[in-house]
Amino acid sequence: MKILTCIKQVPASSNVDVDPETGVLIRDGKNVKMNPYDLYALETAYLLKARSGAHVHTVTMGPPSAADVLREALMMGSDGATLLSDPRFAGADVLATAYALSQMLRRIGFDLIICGKQTTDGDTAQVGPEIAEFLDVPHVSYVRDVDLRDDKTLRIRTVDDRHEDVLDIKLPCLITVDKDANTPRLPSFKRKRSTRDIRIETWTLDDLSDKEATHYGLRGSPTQVESIFPPERQATGRIHSNLENPGKTLFDILVEQKWLRGD
């Protein structure tokens, strides 16, 4: 079985700089980390690999510095990695990102694609499902557990606020894995050594079958950023000290804010 995992490099802190002209995130390759949600996607792949001997290949689209997260994936358990990087992809919105990735994934070939649920920067949770639509394969999001039923079917458990589903899904397909679905392993020094010689190839637009540059990057993005601004901060907490009856005061506040019913 061939598993492809999609990961993204995101800013390590929540204070990100945005280009005021274009509304595009300024990514300089400094102070970055792997999107934390993608750790659960990778772990899901590695657990399947341990059970079925699957081959796990990891990809990312991003600037050349994004190769760092691919190295990290090799240190954790991936068998190979490819970077999709081309200035012509810059400014991609969700649709253009998913389109470029789908072109790449189709060419590499897969039985199963595993994405994170969402990222901590773009935060849309749309890339996974959109890739599946472009590739015309079934997809399931919010996945918690995966197991192989037979060599053509996955048994999947998903959880949302209200209910839990257990589904069977035919391969090839795509899943997005929920936060806390598992305990992601740490990068291993022994794997760092043993994967040192694995070359991470960089693909550009020229490696994709659709070579029409206007389908990618800012030009391929229907989303127009009107303006971009930090959300207004909620007022900070209130401090009540030296109260006669602190329990009652707290109760009244909780009722006032509708956390509790007063009756």
Binding site: R185, P187, F189
Partner: peptide, 18 residues
């Protein structure tokens, strides 16, 4: 640690989450 101290492996704890 791996070569001389017989550590089974060495795992990296580098990000805030980890």
């Amino acid at each position: 640690a791996v070569d001389k101290l017989d550590a089974h492996d060495v795992y990296l704890i580098d990000t805030d989450d980890r």
